[in-house]
């Protein structure tokens, strides 16, 4: 990973999430009553007033939006692709899209991938399935 990139700083809400990421697991927060999941991690359950439970994502999803970033974030080298992925479990994730060209089509099935290790917690990404 390139120097100068922002890296995630775990909070009390996300410490388990990032520990799982370091093991190659993407955690979602699941509401036991409705079976629905939320992402990003929050201190509350969006689907009820009981506490949500961590649940590992299958890592499968569909690309529903994509852009080629040409004015990069600090430490990134443009151009690069970022997208919104609708996970099989329901919630949407903003992540880099790896191993894909700029003409990747929306509706493309994607799977979880991981950025090369660097400073800070390991970061999830997606690639064409």
């Amino acid at each position: 990973m390139m120097a100068g990139r922002a890296h995630a700083k775990p909070s009390d809400v996300t410490v388990e999430f990032w520990a799982a990421a370091d093991r190659g697991v993407l955690l979602l927060q699941n509401d036991a009553r409705t079976g629905r999941c939320q992402f990003f991690p929050r201190p509350v359950n969006l689907f009820g007033e009981t506490k949500s439970q961590w649940k590992a994502a299958s890592g499968l999803g569909t690309l529903i939006a994509v852009t080629t970033v040409r004015v990069p974030a600090p430490g990134f080298e443009a151009p690069y692709l970022v997208g919104l992925i609708k996970l099989a479990e329901g919630p949407r994730v903003f992540a880099r899209l790896l191993n894909a060209g700029p003409h990747v089509a929306l509706g493309q099935k994607v799977r979880l991938a991981w950025e090369p290790g660097g400073e800070g917690p390991r970061l999830y990404a997606f690639e064409p399935a």
Partner: peptide, 22 residues
């Protein structure tokens, strides 16, 4: 800073690029 910036979010044009693609 935790779930957008480390993933290459470089500002509002990214949100609108994604929206526009959809």
């Amino acid at each position: 800073p935790e779930f957008a910036d480390p993933f290459g979010y470089s500002g509002p044009p990214v949100v609108f690029g994604l929206l526009s693609s959809a």
